[in-house]
């Protein structure tokens, strides 16, 4: 959707540059559509509502830096570990009124999910999807727009393709807590540090995490952001510039992770990640 805005602006800029603008009036949206200025299907975005559009599920505002387009319907998102990050990914859609299902996570902390923004009233839990879990997940995708899954067994390529097809057909989003080879987008927590607790005093209050996303197609460019997950007030928020840098300088002691010049939202949009996945698995 963001791409739509850019396209419109660049088109009108080019129009202005190439020839004299039409005198006296601005072309209406439908004229632009019929005149071929806007590619049909891209739609006309209008601010934030664009994120709740027909072909994406919204994400929490704090995650827009990582997933500027939200969660595209019909896609598979792989988060390396089950944990708060999976729940936070689903929270935006749940807040916007979608039903969510969580399969294969008998030890889910529902209170944490509710605090993250998942509405417990629109949540289905299938703790043990059993042997026929692909069938169960396919049924859940029929009813719920977002399904969080930890596969009980490693899925074969055939099962993966089938579930991806089901996800596309129903226009849902499948968030996998684990590995998924064909995932459109992968999200991991690269580093984390807890705040508020010392040696025998204090208590856990907040956690600073560096979340890295990577993927195929439109989501292809690796991005990294420092987030409060959760913050001191329990919400997910973007860390103000400077705090994350201090942490990096202080050294978090995450062994084996080679992170190059990351696009972490502080020094412009260009950046490069040197194989964070390989680094994680090696470390």
């Amino acid at each position: 959707m963001g791409a739509g805005i850019v396209q419109l602006m660049s088109l009108s800029a080019r129009q202005g540059g190439d020839g004299p603008p039409p005198r006296g009036r601005v072309p209406s949206a439908s004229e632009m559509l019929h005149g071929g200025c806007v590619i049909p299907g891209v739609g006309l975005p209008s601010g934030d509502e664009a994120l709740c559009g027909a072909d994406v599920l919204p994400v929490l505002p704090a995650l827009r830096g990582l997933l500027p387009d939200g969660l595209p319907r019909g896609s598979v998102v792989a988060a390396a570990d089950p944990g708060l990050l999976c729940l936070v990914l689903a929270a935006g859609a749940s807040t916007a009124g979608s039903w969510c299902a969580i399969a294969g996570l008998p030890d889910l902390g529902v209170v944490a999910a509710a605090d993250a923004g998942l509405d417990p009233g629109r949540l289905l839990l299938v703790a043990d999807p059993g042997e026929g879990w692909p069938q169960v997940v396919a049924s859940l995708l029929d009813g719920c727009e977002l399904v969080i899954l930890r596969p009980p067994t490693r899925p074969s390529a055939q099962v993966r393709r089938r579930l991806e097809a089901v996800t596309r057909r129903h226009g849902g989003v499948l968030v996998v807590a684990g590995d998924w080879d064909g995932a459109q987008c992968r999200v991991i927590v690269a580093r984390q540090e807890w705040a508020g607790i010392g040696a025998g005093h204090g208590r856990l209050r907040a956690r600073l995490v560096q979340v890295v996303t990577d993927g195929r197609g439109a989501a292809g460019r690796p991005r990294a952001r420092w987030l409060w997950l959760p913050g001191p007030d329990g919400t997910v928020a973007v860390v103000a510039a400077g705090i994350g840098g201090g942490l990096e300088a202080g050294g978090l002691g995450v062994g084996g992770l080679e992170v190059g010049a990351l696009d972490d939202g502080r020094d412009g949009d260009t950046g490069e990640v040197i194989a964070p996945w390989r680094g994680m698995s090696a470390g």
């Binding site: 529902v110 949540l123 289905l124 299938v126 703790a127 049924s139 029929d142 009813g143």
Partner: peptide
């Protein structure tokens, strides 16, 4: 919604009534 109820009922038919839970705080 009917759609959610249908999906949940189908999973219940596969795994048993107590396999699909809803959390209440």
């Amino acid at each position: 919604s009917d759609r959610v109820a249908r999906a949940a009922t189908r999973v219940q038919a596969m795994l048993g009534h107590e396999a699909v839970m809803q959390p209440v705080l």
